[in-house]
Design a binder for these strands. Structure first.
Length: 372
DNA sequence: AAGGATTTCAACCGCTCAAAG
DNA sequence: ACTTTGAGCGGTTGAAATCCT
């Protein structure tokens, strides 16, 4: 089998093969077309270069910004990002990201640009304070391109938040960072959510597929927009859990074995770290400075009864992802919520699932495999 | 202009997963 | 239930292009 760069002749043979036989069955290319390339190589060549719907040229500023936003939520999920960028390949996005990452690291700049961080803070501040959102056409948040969250905010001239803090946030089963504001017209929440009153503000459901936490957890950056240090401490960057990795980094624990049942995980600098934790987990009551307080990760009974089958499946998938992400059992109908206890420390707690009566190990960390 | 440094990008590799046998 | 096969994903590599001194 030949390796290395493709020649125009080989390209033509492959194109002709696809014209005759269609995409797929790449291992048959050699037999059917006499091309001395392995199936893998053919698939890659077709997907990255010969496909007719490919967009050539460098990324537009809009595409670049979308990549940043997607990466802030998905991590290094290039294929999933590519699915949101028509005509772009995962390879292109990956190359772009790696180049950009290297450049910004060298320049000592944060991975995510300030405008993303601003939007993120903006979301959280208003949710925490329960103050009305004053959005206008000139508000830069409303100009962000749509993101593919299950739930994204639909900007309106004025959106009144409920008087309560509504904690923890109920619109994300796993309390991942809040969605950004999206100008996209979306499906009304009432059509998918049987209990819209649970929603802390006027959210709509984006029809695009739900983004769930990634499963593969190698070499990935923290997804938190405010997490500005891309360098994985401890070297190697081979952590097996992005969330857990961030947790350990923030708590400066060297070994997951150090985390025990009921233990408070101290954070080095209460205020700032608490805020970052709150934002990492999308919780908003992080204003207090009690040194004995911390963050809890709870598994509670389900507060969600999703109406549509597809949404239920999405939820189920998310729970599965979540279970793998945290390496702990998560009941299909459980709601995971991350509660930041006031400032300064991290406490991780998991409750039994009262609906199913399952006796879930409240401290799965104890049996957690090594992080590296 | 030369040569080293850096960037870009195409391609490969190892791995996982799902479907078929 | 097990093995094989095909497809896809993400990390890495290395050659070519570009930049910089």
């Amino acid at each position: 089998m030949k390796k290395g760069p493709w020649t125009p002749t080989e390209d033509e043979v492959l194109l002709e093969h696809v014209r005759r036989h269609g995409e797929g069955n790449w291992n048959a290319v050699e037999r059917l077309s006499g091309l001395a390339r392995c199936g893998k190589s053919c698939r890659l060549r077709w997907a990255n270069h010969l496909r007719p719907d490919l967009k050539k040229g460098s990324f537009t500023p809009e595409e670049e910004f979308l990549i940043l936003r997607l990466h802030s939520q998905l991590g290094n999920k290039w294929a999933r990002m590519a699915a949101q960028l028509p005509g772009r390949t995962d390879n292109e996005i990956k190359n772009y990201w790696n180049t950009r990452l290297k450049r910004r690291q060298r320049a000592g700049l944060p991975v995510y640009p300030p405008e993303l961080q601003d939007a993120f803070r903006f979301d959280r501040r208003h949710l925490r304070q329960g103050t009305p959102l004053q959005l206008s056409a000139t508000n830069h948040h409303s100009q962000l391109p749509p993101l593919l969250d299950l739930v994204s905010f639909c900007p309106q001239p004025e959106v009144a938040l409920p008087p309560t803090n509504s904690l923890p946030c109920h619109f994300s089963f796993f309390e991942f960072p809040l969605p950004f504001y999206s100008p996209a017209p979306t499906i009304p929440a009432s059509s998918l959510l049987p209990e819209p009153q649970m929603w802390p503000c006027s959210y709509d459901v984006n029809p695009l597929p739900m983004v769930s936490p990634p499963r593969a957890l190698k070499m990935e950056l923290p997804s938190n927009q405010l997490y500005t240090d891309p360098v994985i401490r401890g070297g190697g960057g081979s952590g097996n859990c992005r969330l857990m990795e961030a947790l350990l980094q923030e708590t400066q624990l060297q070994d997951p074995e150090d985390i025990r049942t009921g233990e408070l995980l101290p954070l080095p600098a209460a205020d700032e770290q608490a805020v970052r934790w709150g934002e990492l987990f999308s919780v908003s009551d992080y204003d207090c400075g009690d040194a004995n307080a911390g963050i809890r990760i709870r598994e509670t009974s389900s507060e969600f009864n999703m109406g549509s089958k597809s949404t239920s499946e999405a939820l189920s998938n998310t729970m599965k992802d979540m279970s793998e992400l945290l390496d702990m059992p998560v009941a299909a109908n459980a709601q995971l919520s991350v509660v930041l206890n006031e400032g300064g420390a991290v406490e991780v707690e998991q409750q039994l699932d009262p609906l199913q009566g399952r006796n879930v190990d409240p401290w799965p960390w104890n049996s957690m495999p090594g992080i590296c």
